[in-house]
Design a binder for these strands. Structure first.
Length: 101
DNA sequence: GACATGACCGCAC
DNA sequence: AGTGCGGCCATGT
């Protein structure tokens, strides 16, 4: 299981991502006061329930790509949510300038 | 404790 | 631009 004290900070940072913008796992970790915990962020998001209201879909890898294999269900769900916020996704990669606030 | 795995990252080829 | 490798933290075998 995940450490709640760390997870809480991560949740807070993820929830603070502005609409229409995205961040990387590493950034989330750093802004959460947990540098080097990029992989841990992925673990935390993975444990999120489907009914969670956190904007987890705004979290991408450092290269701007979605962290799921193209075509997978999770990939499609994230892609759609991003498009609904006006974020263009091309070949699993976002095409926005203001990457990372 | 050794080894493998994961919604990762950075740098070198 | 794509791949590979080592490093990263936590879990599971």
């Amino acid at each position: 299981m995940v450490d709640v004290s760390k997870a809480a900070k991560i949740w807070a940072v993820v929830a603070a991502i502005p609409l229409g913008k995205v961040a990387s796992y590493g950034q989330i970790a750093a802004l959460s006061g947990l540098p080097g915990y990029a992989r841990y962020v992925g673990k935390v998001l993975k444990e999120l329930p489907d009914d969670s209201r956190l904007p987890w879909h705004r979290v991408l890898r450092s290269d701007g790509k979605i962290a799921f294999p193209l075509g997978s269900e999770a990939f499609e769900k994230q892609r759609v949510r991003l498009l609904e916020e006006g974020i263009v996704v091309k070949n699993g990669k976002v095409s926005i300038r203001n990457y990372g606030w």
